[in-house]
Nucleic acid binder design. Structure first.
Lengths: 267, 267
DNA sequence: CGACCGGTTGAAGTATATCAAGTACGGTGG
DNA sequence: CCACCGTACTTGATATACTTCAACCGGTCG
């Protein structure tokens, strides 16, 4: 019962969108192929899917028929453990490849759940080798994307490796900030698409601890936080918090509500 | 000083081995290609390297000239953090792909250090696209291997996600056991190639805590431990310890040296 | 309106980091 | 050969930061 309550309600999994400008070209662009090479003849058009928030793109344990590339929106990749705890293993958004990890195992290793209105391209697994054969560019792009996923996983590991909860959260935020910068959005002010509970799960701490760490950082003047909207005020100090794998930051945040603290206020 | 003392002495990085039976075929087998398809004409022979324990295969931050496939022995992939702490991100052995994560970034993201006498095949990066073009089988094998690496990374994440140190260690051991089984060695009794400190780093706990957890498990009769040699006595109970992400195992190990405890003894 | 969900905050117990000492092993040099 | 040192591992004592349980607030939805 707990397990089923933490899993998002599995509404209609996905509804296909009929037409679009040029799916294939867009897909290649998502995979990081420069437009010049994108024209290499791939056989079929990729399938485009739309998902509502909470909808699941793939189910843990299900057969892998498609792999997906995120076109818009964002997702969380989770595994439900025996005790019903929903372990978040990754967040994914534009350009990320989903489901490939399950390919070598035959079955999906994670459930992928949309965090907002999202669209993805689906590539039929049985067509993959054909596509590889037809397009060198595609083949290489796929590998590069896989490499990026690997880098991402390492980054996540490094995040969880810190012992202190504040350090973990600081790393998460800096990582998010860089992620936003990479796609041309503001690295200073962004919206977290996931709940505190999801962040906590990825970070491997209790969700209350995430809340507290946020509060601590706000009080220290590093951040301004309004629900899921985050503004980074002091990059310098935040970066300092990401350092120090062992026992907290170099310059630990004040534990008690020290007097002069820039509370979150209306602009 | 701390940093340099934790990094293994960078002895002669690697010495090439001149000849061997059929390197290309063996390389393909390592990547998981069935022998039947392995003959597809690849241009050049892969480079074979031998490394002594403590030797570093690649340096964090160095340019990526080669990617490597482990032929024998084992490695740890580490990143040295600003405070000099050596963060272990992965262990690698036979069949594992090393250095690919750095490809999309241009520079190695981790230093790779041999844990024992080891050999690897090196593939020149500038030849990769050529090899891809020449051999479909190679191309596909590379992708599958990348997929496996991804699965591995997820597994590691799941390991670190547990809050309790015992749970983490239990997952690590079960994972190791499965790993041994996959390659046809005994899943019950095996030799850990890495130090307690390395394990602790991967698990994200203090090395003293790893020691204590081992002792606890031995006292509970789950294991027999002799230095780096581990024998699993009670798979059932060990598996129970891997469950329970939150707060320890279902059936917590006795904290105090409870009277009837099967100590490690000579056979 | 009441229920529920997401988020925040408080209080208490506990697991783990940290500091520190002590053992065992292997290598090195006298 | 033995003293010496460094490394790996273990074990103990203490402090602290985290989990957990609990209450509370502000939204949204039926």
């Amino acid at each position: 019962m707990f397990a089923s309550s933490t899993i998002a309600p599995s509404c209609s999994p996905a509804t296909p969108l009929p037409r679009s400008p040029d799916p294939l070209q867009e897909l290649m662009r998502l995979l990081g192929v420069p437009d010049s090479q994108a024209s290499c003849g791939l056989p079929n058009q990729p399938l485009k899917l739309r998902l509502a928030p909470g909808a699941t793109l793939s189910h843990e344990g299900a057969e892998v028929d498609f792999i997906h590339v995120v076109r818009s929106g964002s997702f969380k990749c989770v595994r439900v453990l025996e005790d019903g705890y929903e372990q978040v293993l990754n967040f994914a958004d534009r350009g990320d490849l989903l489901g490939f990890d399950g390919l070598c195992r035959g079955a999906h290793l994670t459930s992928v759940i949309a965090l907002e209105d999202s669209t993805v391209y689906g590539l039929a697994v049985h067509e993959l080798s054909l596509m590889r054969a037809q397009s060198q560019a595609f083949c290489q792009a796929l590998q590069m994307t896989l490499g990026r996923q690997l880098v991402r996983a390492e980054r996540t590991l490094e995040m969880m490796a810190a012992v202190s909860a504040e350090t973990r959260l600081a790393r998460f935020l800096v990582w998010q900030s860089e992620h936003m910068a990479e796609r041309g959005e503001s690295p200073r002010r962004f919206l977290l698409r996931m709940s505190r509970r999801d962040i906590a799960s990825l970070l491997g701490v209790a969700h209350e601890t995430v809340s507290r760490s946020f509060t601590l950082m706000v009080r220290a003047g590093l951040l301004r936080v309004d629900n899921r909207e985050v503004e980074i005020l002091d990059f310098e100090h935040l970066a300092a918090c990401t350092r120090g794998t062992r026992g907290g930051c170099d310059d630990p945040l004040p534990r008690s509500p020290a007097g002069s603290a820039p509370l979150l206020d209306a602009a």
